[in-house]
Amino acid sequence: MSLEENESKTIFFRITTQRKKDWKTICKAKNISLTSLIINSVENRMLDDERRKVLEFIEKQDNVFTKIETNINQVAKIVNTQKFISNKELDNFSEKLSEIIILKQSQNRIFENIYALLAK
């Protein structure tokens, strides 16, 4: 790749004053630059603010599952200490674990789609 290919160039184009004002309002609300708005829109890529929201979502999801895993460990510790768990409690616990597995699989599919979008 030559040095010239990496050089930034200026492009001038005409839009109405109102449209520019509207675009700047969008940029301010999304906390992104006008250049980012135009380039990402033209290239059909995810906007920077959307990317930040997705990453925050992923982080929150991870925190939720960390709390669930902590609760599972607490139940296991209680059972190990008492050396007993009733059939009803075991069935309930197993049901919850099955739900978690389904949710985790669903989350992973969503993450795969998100990562594909982020890669654009």
Rank of each mutant, 00 (worst) to 15 (best):
D91F: 11
K9L: 01
Q18P: 06
S33W: 04
I100C: 01
F57I: 03
K24I: 04
L55N: 08
K88Q: 05
I101A: 06
A119G: 07
T35S: 07
S86A: 01
Q82A: 09
K60L: 05
K28I: 02
E89R: 01
E5L: 10
I85F: 02
I32R: 06
K83G: 11
K60H: 01
S33I: 03
V42R: 06
F12T: 06
I85L: 12
T10N: 10
S98E: 04
I11K: 07
I32D: 08
I72Q: 11
T70L: 14
E56K: 12
A76C: 05
E5W: 12
E5H: 10
S2H: 00
S86C: 05
T25I: 07
E50F: 09
D48V: 13
K53M: 11
V54C: 06
K88R: 00
V64Q: 00
N92P: 08
S41Q: 01
N108V: 07
I102P: 03
T17R: 01
C27A: 01
Q105R: 03
I11M: 03
V79Q: 10
I102K: 11
K60G: 00
Q82G: 02
K21L: 00
R45M: 14
T70S: 12
T16M: 07
F84L: 05
F93W: 15
N6D: 14
E95L: 15
E4L: 12
N87H: 03
I11V: 07
L55R: 12
C27S: 03
N108I: 15
Q105V: 05
I11F: 09
S106Y: 10
T81H: 15
E99F: 15
N87V: 03
I72D: 07
V64R: 03
F57Q: 01
I58Y: 06
L47A: 09
L3A: 01
D48H: 13
C27M: 07
N63G: 11
K77Y: 12
I32C: 04
M46V: 15
N113V: 09
S98C: 04
N6R: 14
I58R: 11
E59P: 05
K21N: 07
K30G: 04
F57C: 03
K21V: 00
K83N: 14
Q105E: 11
R51H: 05
K96W: 14
Q105W: 02
K24C: 03
L118S: 01
K60W: 02
Q61M: 15
Q18L: 15
I85V: 13
I39A: 00
K21A: 05
A29V: 05
V75D: 10
E4K: 15
S41Y: 08
Q61C: 10
I26D: 02
K96S: 11
I11C: 04
I32L: 05
E4Q: 12
I26T: 00
T17D: 12
F13W: 09
Y115T: 11
E59M: 08
L34H: 04
T10L: 14
L37W: 06
I100F: 02
N80D: 08
T66W: 04
S8D: 03
F84H: 06
V75K: 14
I78G: 04
L90C: 09
W23E: 05
V79A: 13
I58T: 06
E7M: 13
N44A: 11
I68P: 11
I72G: 09
K77T: 14
T81N: 13
